[in-house]
Design a protein around this nucleic acid. Structure first.
Lengths: 187, 187
DNA sequence: CGCAAGAGTGAGTGAGCAATCACTCTCCAA
DNA sequence: TTGGAGAGTGATTGCTCACTCACTCTTGCG
């Protein structure tokens, strides 16, 4: 595994690194608020080479989104393994906790929110639906919970997105506390 | 098409019309995907005059968002008045139905989704929080439901946003049906 | 009437950014 | 040793768009 240090890399080795940089940059600014130059800078390569690896900006965003959902699924799987017992509710709860922990730094959450707002771009909509399918299927199959419980799991996940994007959790008022109750995790 | 009496309007009369056009245009493309020229065209005035009425694009977006929440609140109020009985659950259900009906054309829903993704713009974040506060307070006070029930009401509203943005309702697969169950309304 | 205040616009300007291209440099297989 | 495939870039292009400004037209008023 110890590669001899050479100056050049390979395109196949670069792509995941660029995708990872893209996750961070697109999470910050969304498809329109982050530039390919931003991603290039974060990945320490030239903008021109980013375009050689991912011919269109939207494709780069879609790949970043896939990476995001991959991380989400892995976190859910780990969380499920740590459930208190193997009742459906316990497993869903454990997955929820794992998700809350994963998105503590807002990056993966913001990327999903931005993706939702540009879901009419075909490649992005496709990636979003694929990710949602994987999460939904996994939650259902791994927990064995009822359809209604899985639906609730996803719904409260979306509420969590709203709370974080609006920073409602930082508002010391009753209506805000009501929304965040049981959702936010202590730092 | 030489209009005989093209009467001048007043800035105060124009602003709501431009805001209404902005709702439509920003709902389509979001803050970055719709241009001020788009809004101007929809409002049938020049881009220059849009800037005279709303000096910055973000301010125009925030005003559009306020208009959106105003419409949402009015719809919730009407819905609540039509509840089967005045138990909290009935009222929340009726509000949910009214909301589903209101956002059938996706416009007001998409504007909220886009707003979420640019909530870090101060004026937009403020408008979003203000709208969310009004909706939450109204749902709680008008229905008299428990905090948990109101939280659930908002959470399923967010799930509804996800379903519509991703067009999951059109996917004839089990996981998609699971998510949409009881949420989507017949056309 | 004369004129001021406000309505409304055409024609820019300058910045930013996706995408392209011609090019150099590195590596390795034969 | 060399040639070709692939890694990687600087410079540029063409366009879009937020925002500005100088200007005209309308209307009400003394």
């Amino acid at each position: 595994m110890t590669e001899r240090s050479s100056i050049l890399s390979t395109a196949d080795a670069r792509r995941p690194l660029v995708a990872s940089a893209a996750v961070r940059e697109f999470a910050r600014g969304g498809l329109h608020g982050a530039t390919v130059a931003d991603v290039a800078r974060a990945a320490k390569i030239s903008p021109a080479y980013v375009f050689k690896l991912f011919p269109r900006k939207e494709q780069l965003f879609a790949v970043a989104l896939e990476s995001c959902f991959q991380q989400v699924l892995e976190a859910l799987a780990v969380g499920a393994d740590e459930a208190a017992d193997d009742s459906p509710d316990s497993i869903l709860d454990a997955m929820g906790d794992a998700y809350a922990h994963l998105i503590a730094d807002r990056t993966l959450l913001m990327l999903q929110v931005h993706a939702q707002s540009v879901a009419e771009v075909p490649e992005i909509g496709d990636a979003l639906r694929a990710g949602l399918e994987r999460v939904t299927r996994f939650a259902k199959e791994r927990s064995g919970a009822s359809d209604a419980a899985v639906q609730r799991f996803i719904a409260y996940g979306q509420l969590c997105h709203l709370i974080v994007t609006t920073r409602v959790e930082q508002i010391p008022e009753e209506w805000a506390r009501l929304l965040s109750e049981g959702i936010t995790h202590p730092a």
